[in-house]
Amino acid sequence: MLAVKDIRIGYKGGGLVLDDLEFNLGRGQLLAVLGPNGVGKTTLLRCINAMIKPWAGSVLVEDASVFHMTAAEIAKYLGYVAQRNEAGRMTAFDAVLLGRKPHLRWRVSREDLTKVSAVLHHLGLEHLALRHIDEMSGGELQKVCIARALVQEPQVLLLDEPTSSLDLKNQLDILGTIRRVAKQHGIAAVMTMHDLNLALRFADRFLFLKHGRVFACGRPDQVTAEMVQAVYDVQVDVLHHDGQVVVVPAANASTSAKRYSDRP
């Protein structure tokens, strides 16, 4: 479904941001991209969505390169939920209808309206349909944005920190929704995340980035304390609780920065 091959990205005049990056993702699979701030997680999502053109490498969706598609074609294959979403004075229904933009002709068709209604129903947002999004809570707005991406009818869903600045209930709710939709409709989802425990609970696979390269990749139960320590430079314990992997800072956790500052 989604194949990312030998991606190398750098900025003009700057060094490499991502190098030698490669992974595949099948239908209905969720991948959590993890790593410290500034490691290139958002850059990776933007590259997959062809917002950034890499120096080398390819991104294939259903064996078609996104770099050979028009902007409108990409929008039919890939849905993207940005980290920051602006909310103008518009109903949730119209905000989701915007997601039909890649498919729209001069007039909004009955089919477009039907699909918006169906997505709202599917995500349990019907009661919000006529509410203005500038009056919504962060969690509600995030769900509307996910609905907008889904109504594009994408094969791949890209989510940039979908649960940042949300409370615990909304975090669980949003990630549960993403997982359910991905499984039911065979959508491959790539999420960048900071919360390791939520990522390991909801994703099928994790991918740790370090210094712009893939440091480790695998199933949640394959995460080790050494991996997390090497990526985040924090001492942690990895526990297994109720069949779930839980990462907790070690009792004597300290970063290398802290250790250095402690030196006489």
Partner: peptide, 15 residues
Amino acid sequence: NAIDAGDETARSLGV
């Protein structure tokens, strides 16, 4: 309308 939703969202919608 797409640009009002943010530049990144607009780009992801093919704008």
